[in-house]
Design a protein around this nucleic acid. Sequence first.
DNA 1: ATTCTCACA
DNA 2: TGTGAGAA
Length: 132
Amino acid sequence: MDDQIRRTMPLFSMSIVQKLTGLTARQIRYYEEHHLVQPERTEGNRRVFSFNDVEQLLEIKSLLDKGVNLAGIKHVLGMKTIEAMQPPVEKVAKKPEMSNADVMKYLKSELIQAGRHGKASLIQGELSRFFH
DNA sequence: ATTCTCACA
DNA sequence: TGTGAGAA
């Protein structure tokens, strides 16, 4: 139950999420309009994303590369949400979704990538707690 | 300096 | 989806 809090806890600013996902702020806001992600808001109306939101965005990016349109992505993500809420069911086959380990690996590569450009201090600070 | 909303020569 | 304006 403590894990649920960790991935739901709002931690990332727009700039951080942009670097982490490679998506533009415009796209991220657009996906939010379509309820593909539901970031929290600060008192100043700034978006604050959780670890789950970042994973969700990465999943969206993945599907986009596969040529899936927003309507299709909504269905895929919708199924995921339903599954998460009605879990007491044996999943027949394994899901080709990004595992937590895959996400971690991806984020690390992003940090290295950004590091080669000398501008990773920001996101490293934000993610450090996840790489203990 | 950052991010937000809104609107489109 | 990009982009710029005006505000917070």
